Amino acid sequence: MELDDAYANASHIKGAEGYPPRWQAKAKAFRDGLGGRAELGLPYGDSPRQAFDVFRPQNAAKGTVVFIHGGFWRAFDGSAWSHLAAGPLARGWAVAMPSYDLCPQVSIADITRQIAVAVRSVAARTEGPIAITGHSAGGHLGARMLDRCLIPDAVGQRISAVVPVSPLSDLRPLLKTTMNEDFKLTEQAAIDESPLFMTDRRKVPVTVWVGADERPAFLDQARWLAEKWHADHVIAPGKHHFDVIDAMEDAQSDLVCRLTA
């Protein structure tokens, strides 16, 4: 359809097919190296995919970073990204990584509600501030967690920062992609699920992060959200859609510092 190529990442990244197996291998090695500091498969809902992993620092956690994976709401689970916890862990923060059910078995609105339950479940198991980040579709979901209708005040007041990475902020263009055969979005549903049009947003520090070498559509999506929310806007030089999240592994990166400030 009209915008299929605009939102196609893999076909515009050299060696794209090699990234998923590398992510999986690094994630497994990271989990194996943590031993008892990795709590895996903690349920928050009824289906097998409604579960999250928690990685804890060596000492009492200063707070918790929630990382929400991407995959256009149709692919992956939290287990592919465990290694991205390295940066926050090194700064003394715990990291929680939820999985969720995927389209077309559920709708994007269903996934949003699942992640809201996951954040509440993480909050019940942790103390201190909660910083939320996510990549691509996960960036959309992370931004949606600032909706006061989704997160109760007792939890929302603990949210210290939100950093959507390469987020989808306006879902209406996806109506013009073949992916919508799985999403089954209508115009109104796309508006309702778009962070750009949230009307009752919790005001916390937000940084919208995107790679300079990403597809123009993703640069637009990030810019729209940063402008609408008057948020900080970081365009990471030399980064594309698949490596823009590598900064999560580096405790000294600006991305991790903003999450754990």
Score class of each variant (00 low, 15 high):
residue 118 A to G: 04
residue 155 V to M: 03
residue 101 D to R: 10
residue 135 H to P: 13
residue 166 S to I: 12
residue 131 A to N: 08
residue 188 Q to D: 09
residue 114 Q to H: 01
residue 147 D to H: 11
residue 106 V to A: 09
residue 196 L to V: 03
residue 217 A to G: 11
residue 188 Q to I: 10
residue 147 D to N: 04
residue 185 L to C: 02
residue 166 S to G: 11
residue 145 M to W: 01
residue 189 A to Y: 14
residue 190 A to S: 09
residue 179 M to V: 12
residue 215 R to W: 00
residue 196 L to P: 01
residue 229 W to R: 04
residue 205 P to W: 01
residue 237 P to K: 03
residue 237 P to F: 06
residue 175 L to R: 11
residue 106 V to S: 09
residue 218 F to P: 04
residue 208 V to G: 00
residue 223 R to V: 07
residue 220 D to T: 13
residue 161 A to N: 09
residue 177 T to F: 08
residue 105 Q to V: 12
residue 128 G to N: 03
residue 187 E to K: 07
residue 140 H to K: 07
residue 100 Y to V: 03
residue 115 I to N: 00
residue 123 A to H: 06
residue 223 R to C: 14
residue 139 G to P: 10
residue 123 A to D: 12
residue 212 A to W: 05
residue 139 G to F: 02
residue 155 V to Y: 06
residue 159 I to S: 02
residue 190 A to P: 13
residue 221 Q to P: 12
residue 98 P to A: 01
residue 101 D to Q: 10
residue 158 R to F: 06
residue 148 R to K: 12
residue 141 L to C: 01
residue 214 E to K: 03
residue 165 V to H: 03
residue 185 L to W: 03
residue 111 I to T: 04
residue 237 P to E: 13
residue 223 R to E: 14
residue 101 D to P: 02
residue 226 A to S: 02
residue 148 R to T: 08
residue 208 V to Q: 01
residue 227 E to D: 15
residue 216 P to A: 15
residue 149 C to Q: 14
residue 101 D to L: 13
residue 115 I to D: 01
residue 199 T to R: 15
residue 196 L to H: 05
residue 97 M to K: 02
residue 203 K to P: 10
residue 187 E to H: 07
residue 132 I to P: 01
residue 113 R to L: 09
residue 235 I to N: 09
residue 145 M to D: 01
residue 229 W to T: 08
residue 185 L to K: 05
residue 121 S to E: 00
residue 179 M to K: 15
residue 218 F to W: 05
residue 190 A to F: 05
residue 127 E to W: 12
residue 158 R to L: 09
residue 129 P to S: 07
residue 219 L to E: 13
residue 213 D to C: 08
residue 106 V to L: 03
residue 116 A to S: 01
residue 236 A to T: 12
residue 136 S to L: 04
residue 102 L to G: 03
residue 207 T to F: 14
